[in-house]
Write a protein that binds this DNA or RNA. Structure first.
Lengths: 199, 199
DNA sequence: ATTATCTATAGATCTATAGATAATGC
DNA sequence: ATTATCTATAGATCTATAGATAATGC
């Protein structure tokens, strides 16, 4: 095993990458440092040369999870507006994403635990929410930017809530119904100029 | 201290009530049995005469949390349809609820952790989701029951997602924006016959 | 006789640190 | 000289159980 700076950087990234995945799968309290380091092929003692504390790892790993999902959004975006928002919704609200939280969206996997985390983690979360809302807003039709932002916030909330619920229920049919229903209604919402008819 | 059956029932309920609140505040792994029993004025040894395991407590306490919120929904419902759905939305998406998860909705406080819990907890969750969707559907206008159910699922998802996100971000203005925006759009959605204009 | 509760503790964690080792990098 | 990693461990948890005590309830 090597000890160069380049090697340390690689090791650091490997630890964060594994933690990022496992946190989404098992929760922020789902495993210990020894277990994590073992999966990275290391031992527990080396951990604190990479991170000041476990909370430091949480902040970095959650942020890394945001980044991974962000890249997927950016890919979806490259298809052009309107069409790609429908694609983004389908890319989010499906059974593959539901059954693989480790490679999925960190909000639907961790939002309530992030809410109980330290300031740094929640600051990074604020930035990511802003960025995701912004991205969805640009994919919405219509010239009214404020209205687009509002709708983007609704769509983002519904995506996160639907995935959280679809994972929490044990009834497979109900879980699928949640995913399909919300995907369909959001796609309608995304493709129209106004949110609702006035009464 | 007494040892009668009536006393044991009271003690049992007290433990569940405290756990139900603290789980929503601190997460399902947020405290130990010793700490819980101490808050109930008891010691750790007595716990296992009430529950077979910690997971048994989780199932019972999460279900109790559902019950508490259900009662609040039923109260909101007593105002009559349409008006009361707007009231329900405002009752959910506000800063008091955001800042007091211990007495609030168990889904927005715990959904991802419930997803990682045992079968029993998730079965109870399925029932509760069904019941909440049903309740929201009855408050929606229109004769088409299937359309009402679909919209109810969207509204429920958006409520849970918006609260989860509003709690996760550290930026107070962004948090408020999420709550207000989603509340407003959902109330529009709830008061109209059709979800969207056709293009 | 049964049992709700208590004290005490076994055994398994978990975070963090100390000190040794072996490599890098000046 | 510095440091990335290792082994080992301190000290604080945590779940669950054993056995004693004191009350209920037949």
């Amino acid at each position: 095993m090597g000890y160069s700076k380049a090697q340390k950087t690689r090791t650091h990234k490997r630890i964060v990458s594994i933690a990022s995945k496992r946190f989404r799968e098992k929760g922020l309290a789902g495993f210990g440092i020894a277990e994590l380091m073992k999966e990275a092929g290391l031992t527990v003692g080396g951990f604190y040369k990479h991170f000041g504390s476990r909370d430091d790892l949480v902040a970095e790993a959650v942020n890394s999870a945001f980044g991974g999902w962000q890249r997927r959004l950016d890919v979806a975006k490259s298809g052009g507006p309107s069409v790609s928002l429908a694609k983004l919704i389908d890319d989010y609200l499906n059974e593959t994403h539901r059954d693989n939280p480790g490679s999925g969206c960190a909000f639907s996997a961790l939002a309530p635990e992030i809410a109980r985390s330290d300031k740094r983690t929640r600051s990074l979360t604020s930035e990511q929410v802003r960025s995701d809302v912004q991205l969805i807003a640009t994919l919405l039709p219509g010239r009214d930017k404020r209205a687009a932002r509002s709708r983007a916030i609704l769509i983002f909330s519904a995506l996160v809530g639907a995935m959280s619920l679809a994972r929490a229920v044990s009834d497979e049919a109900l879980s699928r119904e949640i995913l399909k229903t919300v995907a369909e209604l959001l796609k309608n919402l995304a493709s129209t100029q106004r949110v609702v008819n006035s009464p």
